[in-house]
C-alpha cells in the first residue's frame, strides 16, 4: 500500500463534557504544543478559531500548551439541552464557572489565561478571584468597564439577518491596515454565530461583567496582569484599557498601533511581535 503524507496543521480538536450547575455542556476544544498551559478565550459572538495562528505558531507552542475552547452556544460547542426554552444571556457567574470547570476537567495546572474582548474582561475577574491558580492573565482588548454605544436589539430580530448584522457591526473594530484575508476570516466567524448569541454575550461584556469597582483589588505580585489593546479598537478603546491599567497596581499595558479589536486573528504577525515578549517574560 502506498504511504500517503498528509500535511496536517499542528492543532488537534476534541470534545469533552463538563457539568455546571447540574447542566451538561459538550465542549469543543483545540490544542497544540507542550509546556505551560496557555488557555485562550475568544471574543463575544465568535469562537476559538480566532486563535489558530497562535495554536500553529511553533515559536509559542515549543514552550506553551496552547488551548482554545468554544464556549457553549459558540462554534462547535453545543448549547445545552433545553436551550430553546429561553434566550441566551451570559452572566458573569456562568462565564466564570464554565472556565473554571473546563480548567478542572482538563486538569490544567497553573495555566496562563489569555482572553480577548469579553475574554479580556473575565480574565480580570479571575486575576482577582483565582490569583493562586492562574500563573498570569493576559487581557487582549481588555478593560474593566465599557460604555455601550449601540442598541443590542438590532442583533436579534427576525427582520434583520443576524450573521450579516453581527459582521457589519464588528467590522468597525478592525483596523484598515489589517490584511483583507484576515479581516474577512474574522468577520466570517461572526457571520456564523447562532441567533441571539452575540447579543447574549454582550450582556456580560456591557452590563453584568463591570469590574471597575474591584479591579484595583487585584494583586499583580500574586497574578501578573498584562493588557494589550489595539489603536483602532473603537469598542475597548486604548483609553479604556489604559484607564483600567491605572487602577491595577503593577499591571503592564501596551497599545498596539495599526491593529483593532481582534489582534490575534485580524493581523496575526503584528500581534505576535507584541505577544512574544510577554510570553518570554512569563517563561522567566
Amino acid at each position: 500500500m502506498k504511504s500517503i503524507n498528509i500535511e496536517f496543521e499542528d492543532i488537534i480538536g476534541r470534545y469533552l463534557n463538563i457539568n455546571v450547575d447540574n447542566t451538561n455542556y459538550r465542549i469543543y476544544v483545540e490544542e497544540s504544543g507542550q509546556g505551560i498551559p496557555l488557555l485562550c478565550l475568544h471574543t463575544a459572538g465568535s469562537d476559538g478559531r480566532q486563535f489558530r495562528h497562535i495554536l500553529n505558531d511553533q515559536k509559542i507552542t515549543k514552550n506553551f500548551r496552547v488551548i482554545a475552547f468554544d464556549l457553549p452556544w459558540h462554534g462547535k460547542s453545543n448549547p445545552p439541552e433545553d436551550y430553546e426554552l429561553k434566550d441566551y444571556k451570559l452572566t458573569t457567574s456562568l462565564y466564570k464557572k464554565i472556565i473554571m470547570s473546563f480548567c478542572d476537567n482538563y486538569k490544567l495546572n497553573e495555566p496562563v489565561i489569555m482572553g480577548c474582548s469579553m475574554g479580556g474582561r473575565v480574565v480580570l475577574h479571575l486575576a482577582l478571584e483565582q490569583s493562586n491558580y492562574f500563573k498570569a492573565v493576559i487581557a487582549l482588548e481588555g478593560s474593566d468597564k465599557l460604555e455601550p454605544y449601540y442598541d443590542l436589539d438590532w442583533l436579534y430580530r427576525p427582520d434583520i439577518h443576524g450573521g450579516l448584522i453581527q459582521s457589519a457591526f464588528v467590522s468597525s473594530q478592525i483596523a484598515p491596515q489589517s490584511p483583507d484575508k484576515f479581516r474577512h476570516e474574522t468577520l466570517w466567524h461572526y457571520m456564523q454565530g447562532g441567533p441571539g448569541i452575540f447579543k447574549g454575550d454582550l450582556y456580560f461584556y456591557w452590563h453584568d461583567g463591570d469590574f471597575d469597582d474591584r479591579s484595583g483589588l487585584i494583586d499583580t505580585s500574586k497574578c501578573p496582569v498584562y493588557l494589550l489593546s489595539g489603536e483602532y479598537d473603537c469598542s475597548c478603546t486604548p483609553e479604556r484599557t489604559l484607564a483600567t491599567a491605572s487602577r491595577i497596581k503593577g499591571a503592564k499595558a501596551t497599545i498596539i498601533p495599526g491593529i483593532g479589536h481582534f489582534p490575534m486573528s485580524e493581523n496575526p504577525e503584528l500581534f505576535k511581535s507584541y505577544i512574544y515578549p510577554i510570553l518570554d517574560e512569563i517563561l522567566k
Binding site: 454605544y149 468597525s172 473594530q173 483596523a175 484598515p176 483602532y232 473603537c234
Partner: peptide, 10 residues
C-alpha cells in the same frame, strides 16, 4: 475613530 461610520458614531 474615523475609519468606519460606527467608529465615528461611537
Amino acid at each position: 475613530d474615523y475609519h468606519d461610520i460606527f467608529a465615528m458614531l461611537a
